[in-house]
Design a binder for these strands. Structure first.
Length: 495
RNA sequence: GAGCCGGUAGCUCAGUCGGUAGAGCAUCGCCCUUUUAAGGCGAGGGCCCUGGGUUCGAGUCCCAGCCGGCUCACCA
């Protein structure tokens, strides 16, 4: 018999013993009157004498994560959410049935207890148990108490165990939830309406990416899991909602890495009558206020580097940044031969057949992006790589667009939206041509979206923020898998 | 997709030159009514990721594969 089976059998044996004693091993309702964290906050600082005098009753529940028994008494540590509290189980104070339950307890079991708060000889804040309810039996042992669970594969595959064994992981996901809640309330306070748009699209659009395909049987059509909500949110601006946002999943059928999960969470928001400059200010306010609210500071530590989110952040135009970082003459932006030569000199691998904008962009991504550690708005992107953005009035080869970089990564992408339906049709057609030329990620022509624009979309600015990467930044995590509860992995062999 | 690293008890890890598979925690038994990595004595527990090969003999060497991590490529 292998070891897991042996431990499982032992626990099933205890489960039977509970059942024979009339204790259901998988009980029903338990009236929790207190939370460990709240008790600690309210009474955790009180002295032994004060606690003895006040005799504060309490009723809590949780999972047993530590058990120290000696003869006719023992201590258990209950995990209640993010908090742990010690309980004292003394035979003299318990009913016969409760004593019997105590004898059958294992690490991992769930119990509910009622008792009185006190302080032990060693000054530990503790519940002296008078009543004990058995709530649920764990058949599998918890990971080792000292090292916990560290095997990354098991941590991701069995996140439930990771969350039990590693309180700091638990905390990351609490923080994640708080950040998203803070973003949501920031936007709602500013008059945004939260909406939900389709996850299944007949035509994937709003980003350059490879989609997942699925099939609807009754309709007899293929559908695509959305790569972005953008085109639907803009339809809503056309429909007359002046401020909308959506926080939801996007799906992209591409590689997996420390910064890519096939499904990831995206915030997109759209503001009618505004332009991308307004969004620069809004983004500074949003991220710095969330940082203050959740982390208590706008100066954060990310993977050993200090990042200052105190506004204002640097604004740097795409072309200027490219030339300044590499000491290039602006003529490289106009002449393909010069751009190729610059790429070669800078050791940026480029396709010699590629068009000018592609060569320039490759140089940009290779040389500028990784150096943008402090928050930086890169503005005025070329039109060829911005098929949904409005042209700059002063220079129609550029767009009213910015991307926000922090810690060398793109965190946000925003622009004044293209609301000219005729220009949008031309851009789609250019994209379609790029697609025919072999670019699988170029946009498809979305006739219904064009129809919507023809009904008239007010001037609008829109932005997308990658929530997972933002959470990584705010929780100092190097891998997206550590901020996504159930990251995508290859299926394991049936356990 | 490529390169590098890893996979040994439930967990965390050792395993030398190829020679009967080890520790701590966990589990089981006994002792113990204020411990906190409780303690003491004793015991059980292994598909060494999978499949081939070399060898008298493979956890160890070779080949192929599976799973994971990191780096790179693509991307947000």
């Amino acid at each position: 018999m292998d070891e897991l089976n042996e431990q499982r059998q032992q626990r099933i044996k205890k489960l039977d013993q509970l059942r024979r004693a009339g204790v259901p091993p998988y009980g029903g309702r338990f009236e929790v009157k207190d939370r460990a964290g709240h008790l600690i906050k309210l009474h955790g600082e009180k002295s032994k004498e004060v606690l003895e005098q006040e005799r504060i009753p309490c009723t809590i529940a949780g999972r047993i994560v530590a058990l120290r028994r000696f003869g006719k008494a023992g201590f258990a540590v209950l995990q209640d959410g993010a908090d742990r509290i010690q309980v004292y189980l003394k035979k003299d104070l318990l009913t016969e049935q409760a004593s019997l339950i105590t004898e059958q307890l294992d690490l991992g079991d769930w119990i509910g207890v009622s008792g009185v708060l006190f302080r032990t000889k060693t000054d530990e804040f503790t519940v002296e148990v008078r009543q004990l309810a058995f709530l649920s039996k764990a058949l599998r042992p918890l990971p080792e108490k000292w090292h916990g669970l560290t095997d990354v594969e098991t941590r991701y595959r069995q996140r439930y165990v990771d969350l039990i064994a590693n309180p700091h992981i638990h905390q990351i996901f609490v923080t994640r939830s708080r950040i998203i809640a803070a973003i949501r309330s920031f936007l709602i306070e500013r008059g945004f309406l939260e909406v939900e748009t389709p996850m299944m699209h007949p035509i994937p659009g709003g980003a350059a990416a490879k989609p997942f395909v699925t099939h609807h049987n009754a309709l007899g059509i293929d559908l695509y899991l959305r790569i972005a909500p953008e085109l639907y949110l803009k339809r809503l601006i056309v429909g007359g909602f002046p401020r909308v946002f959506e926080i939801n999943r996007n799906f992209r059928n591409e590689g997996i890495s420390t910064i890519h999960n096939p499904e990831f969470t995206m915030l997109e928001f759209y503001v009618a009558y505004a332009d991308y400059q307004d969004l620069i200010v809004l983004t500074e306010e949003l991220l710095s206020s969330v940082a203050r609210q959740i982390l208590g500071t706008t100066v954060i530590d990310y993977q050993g580097a200090t990042i200052d989110l105190t506004p204002p952040w640097r604004r740097w135009s795409y072309r200027q940044a490219l030339c300044e970082v590499n000491g290039l003459d602006p003529s490289v932006l106009r002449r393909r031969d010069e751009a190729l030569a610059a790429a070669k000199r800078l050791k940026v691998p480029v396709d010699p057949q590629a068009p000018l904008f592609k060569i320039v962009n490759d140089i940009f991504e290779e040389t500028v992006e990784p150096n943008l550690q402090q928050p930086t708005f890169i503005t005025d992107y070329p039109i060829e790589i911005s098929p949904l953005a409005r042209r700059k009035d002063a220079d129609p080869s550029l767009t009213d667009r910015f991307e926000l970089y922090i810690a060398g990564r793109e965190i946000a992408n925003a622009f004044s939206e293209l609301n000219d339906p005729l220009d949008q049709r031309e851009r789609f057609e250019q994209q379609a041509a790029q697609r025919n030329a072999g670019d699988e990620e170029a946009h498809l022509v979305d006739e219904d979206f064009l129809r919507a624009l023809e009904f008239g979309m007010p001037p609008t600015a829109g932005e997308g923020i990658g929530i997972d990467r933002l959470i990584m930044l705010f929780t100092d995590q190097a891998s997206i898998r550590d901020v996504v509860l159930f990251p995508q992995l290859r299926p394991e062999r049936q356990p």
